[in-house]
């Protein structure tokens, strides 16, 4: 009985912590947007982050998208052929729509949150516990401007690009499996063409913008809030990934609802 109370207590504590953190994140978002438009323009820093977050994430994004597309084709092909029978000409629609609208954005965002959100939280967290953040202030460089703004811009700009890339790779993975096991590639392409619209791709890109912003803000916030040395850096890193995942999934539902309401 006691352990039940304790776990309820723990959950409550986590909830309070999470809500408090959400408030801090809203505040950080506001500060990032204020600092973004102040001089100097840190082109070099932004470019560096874009390379780290975007370009260097291509291999993991490729791996994720390729196998997601392949398993989608395999599973949907099997279902359409054996369970419903004889409708395997729709594999192209199933793969492309679910990839572009849902799996491409969400899985890519999660992989990037795991790979780069954690790295950003650990980097800023280490800078916090070694007084490098204080040093930035004393050298007249605001840490939000110097650290958070370039990362925010890099995440929000690069994630949509990675998502478009993932959509394409996933579709190719589906094509490969489909033409090997089920129908010809012509039918797959034709089925994609008849169902996929520009709006579907746009919806995924819009999601990517939001997911990128979420990862950047969560990671920066966790980094800046780090205390207690190495242990704290570890906690910040874990929190960055866990909070990003939760917020990506929650916001995905609501973004979807809004996009559907707007007929995108």
């Amino acid at each position: 009985m006691k352990s039940i109370y304790r776990s309820i207590e723990d959950f409550g504590r986590f909830l309070v912590f999470f809500i408090n953190d959400m408030g801090e994140m809203v505040f950080l978002t506001w500060r990032i947007n204020v600092w973004m438009f102040k001089k100097p323009f840190d082109g070099k820093l932004i470019f560096e982050q874009m390379v780290k977050i975007g370009v260097e994430s291509i291999p993991v994004a490729l791996n994720t998208a390729l196998f997601t597309g392949m398993v989608l084709a395999l599973q949907s092909g099997y279902t359409l052929e054996t369970k419903i029978k004889g409708v395997s000409q729709f594999i192209g629609s199933v793969v492309s729509i679910s990839m572009v609208r849902e799996l491409g954005p969400v899985l890519t965002a999660m992989v990037i949150a795991g790979r780069m959100g954690s790295a950003v939280a650990a980097e800023i967290g280490t800078m916090q516990v070694t007084e490098q953040i204080d040093a930035l202030y004393t050298l007249a460089a605001n840490p939000v401007k110097y650290l958070a703004v370039p990362r925010f811009l890099a995440f929000t700009f690069m994630l949509p690009l990675l998502i478009i890339f993932s959509d394409f790779i996933g579709w190719w993975g589906g094509l490969f499996i489909c033409s090997m096991k089920f129908t010809s590639s012509t039918i797959y392409i034709e089925s994609t063409r008849s169902s996929l619209e520009t709006g579907d791709i746009m919806g995924g890109v819009i999601k990517g913008l939001f997911f990128g912003a979420i990862i950047a803000i969560v990671a920066c916030r966790q980094g800046f809030a780090t205390t207690n040395g190495a242990e704290g850096v570890g906690r910040a890193t874990t929190n960055a990934v866990v909070f990003s995942f939760m917020l990506i999934l929650i916001s995905d539902y609501f973004l979807n609802a809004i996009l559907i309401a707007l007929h995108i």
Partner: peptide, 19 residues
């Protein structure tokens, strides 16, 4: 404050150099 900090140098305990 930044203007004032131009007249000020801070030497941190563990140097706090940017890694």
């Amino acid at each position: 404050v930044n203007e004032l900090r131009k007249k000020m140098g801070v030497v941190f305990q563990y140097a706090a150099l940017f890694d």
